[in-house]
Design a binder for these strands. Structure first.
Length: 828
RNA sequence: GCCCGAGUGGCGGAAUUGGUAGACGCAAGGGACUUAAAAUCCCUCAGAGCUUGGCUCUGUACCGGUUCAAAUCCGGUCUCGGGCACCA
């Protein structure tokens, strides 16, 4: 053992040892309770960043802790390896995405090993491996056969920069989640996963997640699913037998519906305007609107405009001829893409009606007021009583909602319905580096799934990447041209690839049996390990990945693969790593490279600071000075053991009765064990756990000065030994080295977690605060659980207490044992 | 606009059930050791005041309330962060 703490030497020594002994290998043998700890796997972008370091350090503490508590812990790692950066790198520097990806994986694996994370590398997976995406293609076909996958032509979010469509979840404030450029709507053929079929279940099962997931994530998911109840109403288009369908949450205002607004993307637009003389105007308006990016279109400031289609529809209750407008504010995506407009009771419709001179009819009167459609200056959106509403006049509007819906139902013109904001998940990507969609287009048979025996549909490697926006594999004739699985005739393959979020929707299942060749995963293995007991990752996936994975789990359940409803029992969303008040980014120049930290301070100091600087769920401020503090602490720990190593080696840690001089240290030791155990177990508060261990080190430095006899060193040894074991999940390398230096053998990961003795956790003397009229006037030290009389006697003896009691009558004394005594004594 | 969270020293943060606010660390200042520096060790460190080895007052975004006692509970306000949002 060296005098000086040299992290590099210590860390590489033990990393080698762990690898050589397969220390982190797990399987489902044994009678220990299982524990599945999962961190969100990284995209192999090239190097790990501080966000990974923080995420995986938190996970590693829990994994090691649970192992030491006697659990059989599955702690896997892999690569979310399909995705656009690989392709962009290929376009920019002519490296094949596969080569680029696998080189990155190799480098990042080395980096993760240098951090000392306890992954079972035997279970490593990369989603770009055909052995992985083969099963995804199988799921796709099975979902297709079950009606959970369909193809449709629709207006979709298009990112010009990435040359691909995006799912709704991947558009943030009208911008691409990946590159930040503006998103436009563009008409496309797309494959969809029918996530809406699970909308209600996804919402209902949030209840099951309440005990283990952060409230914040659940409320975001609830918002996203966006359930609202209302009425579906069919309006007949004048002069035809066709209908326009509308979803409304205000059927009570139907008598006031005086016109109709439909989205520019609505498929009826063309037909409606045909032959009315409005055709040109409508076409120009639609084209103009479609050119506006999504962000502008959905902003409050965007001018509300519309064009009359030249047609009318009939209000089913009043028979009123409602002009049909194409309006730029109507979302094709929500409800039916058409809205019945009630200008008297909806501000937007009111503004629109004023602008285009459309009729306004008041149908709800608020109590004690009388609105007049001629004079009203804004819409009335509140509650009231129905007027101008035929047989419903006089009814409260809240009652009228149901009554009118029933009435419509009887006429065959409407029905009560539930509408979700959630849209089906569009998964086609017009990009190369992804899993091919296993479908074939046959001239005779139409769209046909690939035969299951023919999977995987391998992504061709010999392609040219130009970045022009045409799917590269569509250029590969040998890939595209195939035979129809049904009739054997000439056919063409689908050339879009799947959204990479599909891969991350089930990778946690593959980890359970990563080498399974004949099926996606072994049922018994999955049954043993799943669900994930603790999932850890960034809040940025609150909706995206976490919603998709929940959906996919339910689909796989319905396909008979798994028998649980939710994949992740508990979720911890860790905060971002911030420096100088901003998220680390190249453009801001505030990036800290973990590799430099490992080089300068070692992995242990890096891990320690990540855990100590803030509680895991909060954003963490990076501080260059802070990591020096962590390094200082580890050096202090090193010296402590080094200075005493001879005495510690010869001391007997099992001596039961400590000498008087060491009672305080023994007490502190057991208090620290209790605190650290509870902080990890109950609260995930690693920062306070570390603070407690720092206190113990401070006390040990004091004890070191006074200890001389073997009996005293026995207590010191117990303290140091417990400390090293407890610190090992946090800083596994230095602790292992010190463990050995003290004359112990074996891996700390195989040691059991120290137990505290409750008798030694309690102080025998306590400091009781003495208050007079609620203000602190003194403190007295008394025996633990001293009775009130004793404490009172001591309290009254305090000079400062006497001073404040002078000229006062003691009315009442409140005593909380071991804490506080409050003397209530108002002045005379 | 609706729905969540948060607000404590110069800074990161602690106070777990309402019971001594500021643990632990960083920064800063002072001292010891040293030829010197680094490292290390020790001390001070919320603000104001005073009769200064100690004591008083104020203090957990702001205003008010409940309570013997509030950072913690309740009502209101402000600020910041996040989500949803022309959602029919």
């Amino acid at each position: 053992m060296n005098t000086e703490y040299n992290p590099q030497a210590v860390e590489s020594k033990w990393q080698q040892s762990w690898q050589d002994t397969n220390l982190f290998r797990v399987d489902m043998k044994g009678d220990k309770p299982k524990y599945y700890l999962l961190e969100m796997f990284p995209y192999p972008s090239g190097r790990i960043h501080m966000g990974h370091v923080r995420n995986y350090t938190i996970g590693d503490v829990v994994a090691r802790y649970k192992t030491m508590r006697g659990h059989n812990v599955l702690h896997p790692m892999g690569w979310d390896a399909f995705g656009m950066p690989a392709e962009n790198a290929a376009i920019a520097s002519k490296i094949h995405p596969k080569k680029w990806t696998y080189e990155n994986i190799d480098y990042m694996r080395t980096q993760l090993k240098k951090m000392g994370f306890s992954y079972d590398w035997n279970r490593e997976i990369a989603t770009c491996d055909p052995e992985y995406y083969k099963w995804e293609q199988l799921f796709f076909i099975q979902m297709y056969n079950k009606g959970l996958v369909y193809k449709s032509r629709a207006f979709l979010n298009w990112c010009e920069q990435c040359k691909t469509v995006l799912a709704n979840e991947q558009v943030v404030e009208g911008q691409c989640w990946r590159c930040g450029s503006q998103v436009f709507l563009k008409e496309h053929d797309q494959w969809f996963f029918k996530i809406t079929a699970y909308a209600q279940e996804l919402l209902d099962d949030i209840e099951k997640l309440k005990k283990g997931w952060p409230e914040r994530v659940l409320s975001m998911q609830k918002n996203w699913i966006g359930r609202s109840t209302g009425t579906l109403i069919r309006f007949q288009i004048e002069g035809t037998s066709d209908d326009i369908e509308v979803f409304t949450t205000r059927p009570d205002t139907l008598y006031g519906a005086t016109f109709m607004s439909i989205a520019p993307e609505h498929p009826l637009v063309k037909a409606l305007s045909a032959g009315t003389g409005q055709e040109d105007k409508v076409r120009d308006f639609v084209n103009k609107t479609l050119q506006v990016d999504t962000f502008t279109r959905t902003s409050d400031l965007y001018e509300k405009e519309g064009v009359f289609t030249g047609r009318y529809c009939i209000n089913p209750l009043t028979g009123f001829k409602m002009p049909i407008y194409v309006a730029n504010f109507v979302l094709y995506d929500y409800g039916t893409g058409a809205v019945m407009a009630v200008p008297s009771h909806d501000q937007r419709d009111f503004d629109f009606a004023k602008k285009y001179g459309l009729k306004i009819i008041v149908v709800i009167q608020p109590e004690g007021e009388s609105l007049d459609s001629e004079t009203m200056e804004c819409a009335y959106e509140g509650e009231g009583v129905l007027v101008n509403s035929g047989e419903f006049n006089g009814m409260k509007n809240t009652d009228a909602m149901e009554a009118i819906t029933k009435h419509l139902q009887a006429q065959g013109r409407g029905s009560a319905t539930v509408n979700f904001r959630l849209r089906d998940w569009g998964i086609s990507r017009q990009r190369y580096w992804g899993a091919p969609i296993p479908m074939v287009y046959c001239e005779k048979c139409g769209t046909v799934p690939v035969n299951i025996e023919d999977l995987p549909v391998i992504l061709p490697e010999n392609v040219e990447l130009t970045g022009t926006g045409i799917s590269p594999i569509s250029q590969d004739e040998s890939f595209v041209n195939t035979t129809c699985p049904a009739c054997g005739g000439k056919a063409r393959r689908e050339t879009d690839t799947m959204d990479t979020f599909v891969e991350s929707s089930w990778y946690f299942l593959r980890y359970c049996s990563p080498h399974s060749h004949d099926k996606p995963f072994d049922k018994a293995e999955v049954h043993y390990w799943m669900p994930v007991d603790q999932y850890i990752g960034g809040i940025e996936h609150a909706i995206l990945h976490l919603l998709y994975a929940r959906f996919y789990t339910k689909v796989l359940r319905d396909l008979g693969y798994v028998d649980f409803d939710e994949p992740f029992e508990r979720l911890l969303t860790q905060g971002m790593v911030i420096k100088d008040g901003a998220k680390m980014s190249k453009s801001k120049g505030n990036v800290v490279d973990p590799e430099d930290l490992i080089k300068n301070y070692g992995a242990d100091a890096t891990r320690l600071f990540c855990l100590f600087a803030a509680p895991p769920e909060k954003d963490m401020d990076w501080s260059d000075k802070g990591i020096e503090g962590s390094y200082r602490f580890l050096s202090r720990l090193w010296r402590l053991v080094f200075d005493m190593k001879d005495q510690l080696r010869s001391a007997d840690a099992s001596a039961d009765v400590p000498p008087k001089s060491m009672e305080a240290l023994k007490r502190k030791t057991h208090q620290t064990i209790k605190k650290v155990t509870e902080d990890i177990e109950k609260r995930f508060r690693f920062n306070t756990a570390i603070a407690a261990m720092m206190e113990l080190v401070n006390d040990l430095y004091r004890a070191k000065e006074t200890a001389s006899s073997p009996g005293e060193f026995a207590v010191v040894r117990e303290a140091v030994q417990s400390l090293i074991v407890m610190l090992s999940p946090f800083v596994p390398h230095i602790t292992q080295e010190l463990w050995e230096a003290m004359g112990n053998t074996g891996q700390l990961l195989r040691m059991s977690w120290p137990e505290f003795d409750p008798n030694w956790c309690e102080e025998q003397e306590v400091t009781v605060a003495v208050q007079v009229n609620g203000k602190l006037r003194a403190t007295v030290t008394v025996a633990k659980d001293a009775d009130q009389e004793t404490v009172e006697e001591r309290a009254f003896a305090e000079a400062n207490v006497k001073r404040f009691l002078e000229g006062a009558d003691i009315k009442k004394v409140i005593y909380v044992p071991n804490k506080i005594i409050n003397i209530i004594a108002p002045l005379r």
